[in-house]
C-alpha cells in the first residue's frame, strides 16, 4: 500500500537532507582512499596539493554534475509524463537523449568545439529540440501510449544508426573514444569549466519549468478542461518541450546519454505522494539527483571501478523497472 498521504513539504525536506548527505558521502569515496579529515582539509583549502586536486578538481565537479544531471533528468521525466499524460514518457525512452547524443557526436566529429566552446552543447540541444518537435507533432493529437513509444523507437533507432555511421567515419581513435563515451554516459573527469559551460543551459531549462504545476494538474482533466481553468496549454507545452530539450541537451553534452532516470524517478515519487502531476516536479528533480549520485557511487566502488559506466548502471536498474511499469500499466496501454 502506497503512503499516499505523505505531506508534500516534509517529503521535499527529507529529500533535500538525503541529497546533501549523499553528496557529502560521495566526496569521501573514490579510488584513492582519503580519511574524512583529509577530505575536509582539501575542501577548505588546507590539504596537500594532491589531496586538493582529488577533492576539489575531481570529486567535487563530479558530484555537482551529478546533481545537475540527475535533477534535470528527473524534472524532465516528470513534466513530460504529466504533459503527455503518459507514464512511459522519459527523455530516453522517447528518443530525446539519443538525438541529443547524435548532435554531440556530430559536433565532436567535426571538432566544432575548437571553433566555438559551446558547440557540443548547442548541437546536443538542437538534436533534442528536433526530436521533441517530431514527437509532439506525432503524439499530441492522440495521446496513445503506443504512438508515443513507437515514435520514440523510430527516433532512437535513426539517431543510433546515424551515430554509428558517424563513428565509422571517425577521423582518429581519440575521437572514436570520445564518441563511445557519449553513448555510455559518465560523470568521470568533469571539470568546473565543463560544468560552467552547461550550467546556463541547464538553469534556463529549469527556469522554463517554473510555475507550471497548476497547469499540469489541470491538464490531467484533458486540454479543453485545462483551458477552461485558465491554463494556456500551448504555452505550457512549449515551456516543457523547450525546457526539457535545452536542459537535457546540455546534460547529454556534458555527461552523455544517461537513460532511465527520468522514467523511473516520477514513478517512485508517485508511490509516495500521489499522482497529481504538478506536485511531482520538485521531488522528482531532488530524487533524480539522489539516484544519479548513488548510481555514480556504485561505479566508484572497488568492484566497479574502471568497469562500470554510469549509463550502464542506470540502464541495469532502470530497464527492469521499465518492464515492471509496462507490466503494471498494461491494461491502460491498449
Amino acid at each position: 500500500m502506497a503512503l499516499k498521504g505523505l505531506p508534500y513539504r516534509n517529503f521535499n525536506i527529507a529529500l533535500i537532507i538525503c541529497l546533501v548527505l549523499i553528496s557529502f558521502l560521495s566526496l569521501f569515496i573514490g579510488s584513492v582512499s582519503l580519511s574524512p579529515s583529509e577530505v575536509i582539509a582539501g575542501l577548505i583549502g588546507n590539504g596537500t596539493p594532491a589531496i586538493s586536486i582529488i577533492v576539489v578538481d575531481l570529486r567535487l565537479p563530479r558530484v555537482l554534475m551529478g546533481i545537475l544531471a540527475g535533477a534535470t533528468l528527473g524534472l524532465s521525466g516528470a513534466s513530460l509524463q504529466g504533459m503527455l499524460r503518459n507514464p512511459l514518457a522519459d527523455p530516453g525512452i522517447i528518443g530525446v537523449t539519443s538525438s541529443a547524443a547524435l548532435g554531440a557526436v556530430i559536433a565532436i566529429y567535426f571538432g566544432l568545439s575548437s571553433f566555438f566552446p559551446t558547440a557540443i552543447q548547442l548541437m546536443a540541444i538542437f538534436g533534442a529540440l528536433i526530436s521533441t518537435a517530431i514527437l509532439v507533432l506525432i503524439s499530441m493529437r492522440d495521446s496513445s501510449v503506443l504512438t508515443l513509444i513507437l515514435a520514440g523507437i523510430g527516433i532512437s533507432s535513426l539517431s543510433t544508426a546515424a551515430i554509428s555511421l558517424t563513428m565509422n567515419f571517425a577521423p582518429n581513435p581519440m575521437t572514436l573514444q570520445d564518441m563511445i563515451m557519449w553513448m555510455l554516459g559518465s560523470l568521470e573527469n568533469r571539470t568546473i569549466s565543463d560544468i560552467s559551460i552547461s550550467l546556463p543551459f541547464i538553469l534556463v531549462g529549469w527556469a522554463l519549468h517554473m510555475g507550471i504545476s497548476n497547469g499540469l494538474d489541470a491538464s490531467s482533466l484533458g486540454d479543453d478542461t485545462a483551458r477552461s481553468l485558465g491554463i494556456d496549454t500551448r504555452r505550457m507545452q512549449l515551456q516543457i518541450i523547450l525546457g526539457g530539450a535545452i536542459s537535457v541537451g546540455a546534460v547529454v553534452a556534458a555527461c552523455g546519454a544517461i537513460g532511465f532516470v527520468g522514467l523511473v524517478v516520477p514513478h517512485i515519487v508517485r508511490r509516495l505522494i500521489g499522482y497529481a502531476p504538478g506536485r511531482l516536479l520538485l521531488p522528482s528533480a531532488l530524487l533524480g539527483a539522489i539516484l544519479l549520485i548513488s548510481a555514480d557511487l556504485l561505479t566508484r566502488m572497488p568492484f566497479g571501478y574502471g568497469q562500470l559506466r554510469l549509463g550502464v548502471v542506470t540502464a541495469i536498474i532502470g530497464a527492469p523497472m521499465f518492464l515492471y511499469i509496462v507490466y503494471k500499466t498494461r491494461k491502460e496501454m491498449r
Binding site: R85, D217, S219, S220, L221, G222, T225, G274, Y275
Partner: peptide, 10 residues
C-alpha cells in the same frame, strides 16, 4: 476524462 488516478478531493 481523467488521465491520472487523482483523489476525489484533489
Amino acid at each position: 476524462p481523467v488521465h491520472w488516478p487523482l483523489t476525489v478531493g484533489h
